[in-house]
Design a binder for these strands. Sequence first.
DNA 1: CGCCCGTTTGATTTCATTCAACGCGTGTGG
DNA 2: CCACACGCGTTGAATGAAATCAAACGGGCG
Lengths: 242, 242
Amino acid sequence: MNRADPSLPAAGFAGALRVVSLLGPTYRRWSAQLTEHEKARLGAIGEEVRLRKGQLLYQKGDPYDHLFLLVRGILKTFSLSRDGRCTILAFLFPEDLAGLGEEGLYANAAEAVTDLVAIRMPTRALENVLRAEAHLEMLLLCKACNELRASQQHAIMLSHRSARERVMLFLHLLARRTAAGPGTIDIPMGRADIAGYLGLSVEAVSRAFHALEQDGVLALRSPRKVAIADPVRFHAIADELD
Amino acid sequence: MNRADPSLPAAGFAGALRVVSLLGPTYRRWSAQLTEHEKARLGAIGEEVRLRKGQLLYQKGDPYDHLFLLVRGILKTFSLSRDGRCTILAFLFPEDLAGLGEEGLYANAAEAVTDLVAIRMPTRALENVLRAEAHLEMLLLCKACNELRASQQHAIMLSHRSARERVMLFLHLLARRTAAGPGTIDIPMGRADIAGYLGLSVEAVSRAFHALEQDGVLALRSPRKVAIADPVRFHAIADELD
DNA sequence: CGCCCGTTTGATTTCATTCAACGCGTGTGG
DNA sequence: CCACACGCGTTGAATGAAATCAAACGGGCG
């Protein structure tokens, strides 16, 4: 929200203006941040949900009646194919919106990667809020675009052949979204989840981590925490790949 | 647009109602079809663009000032990594919206796969239209959600799958979007594009096609046209994979 | 006709999967 | 308190699939 600030007229007008923000050069943030007012508005129609690690938020085939705003923790969406394969489609972080883009039924499932807090908003109630505040509709569009770009990033990761490249891109992504100390990344999910996201076996993921350590790019403090041993090379490699 | 028909109140109201359509069980179409009125409205602010196969519509890094509505032909979006790799992110078909979800600059490039016709809409002009007709904003949201789901389908194709499985899923996708005769699929793009989309080498794609022919699932009439030799098995396999 | 591009085929190499086993920390019950 | 099982991460060896390198094929077009 660089320039879209209080000096602008409010209400219905804001909807259109925010579109331009999204479409045009003004809107430069990768995340459509929620204002306090928006948070309040959405919080009012939803109830807080708390999930423990491993619990399902919704499942493929459930009737589609709620939208979720993630407040704290990490959520993953995934699709189970009939042959038993689990493809992780996205990791969602706080401020992300889950349960978007379906059609009457949820098209994939969502499960807590860590303990998490989310706001659960019935779509019926959302209807009223959106009617009252058109610019929230715009917010949904922003969020959807973000998810789209994240998904395309994901595809880029998957079409890079080597396991090392995929893991590099994944860590680069995490580095941008998790705020661990500078030069260190903490990894909220296990190897199995990373493997599911990158389309690799757990073994391949593990080996890639250690290969990167051998190369002097990373230093593995623990399975869930890595230090960037050579930041210059780390970013050089990551940038090289996109 | 199953139930969102003329009996509903128009204008600003429609925006909210259409949201519900998207969110709730009413909105069942995988594609947000444009009404004639919407087409006219958007066509009025845009100019027609005609591209020959191979021409660029926009490039990564260009200032972001136009949105494109594809009318005829096939468009691909892709990302060029610095090491020369070309990852194809999506194939767009008529009625699809291109150039969505960027931030000030185009985040990827788009090139004509076949000769094509599109409507080029300056985002500045779009601003006015969206202000006047809020429900068009909703249309953008629908389109964005569609692209999101397509992108997730793409990720599923890329994850964990053998070359044959990827090609099967790809043909299944084409079969749903191109209207060739029943039991036959025509393939608008070359092997290189398919390879770029599926994260494979051209050779692997070619071999997968011929392996499927050996298996009696397909019959290759020409590189760009295949017949489904065993429709039962074709759909069985495709459904099995998701 | 001969060139060029896209496609196919073949031979070799590389790399991730698979299957198997081990280390390690945690939690549980004897 | 120890023994044990369990989940998770790592390691090793063998297999297999796709990448790579290289060359031939075929159709369209000058």
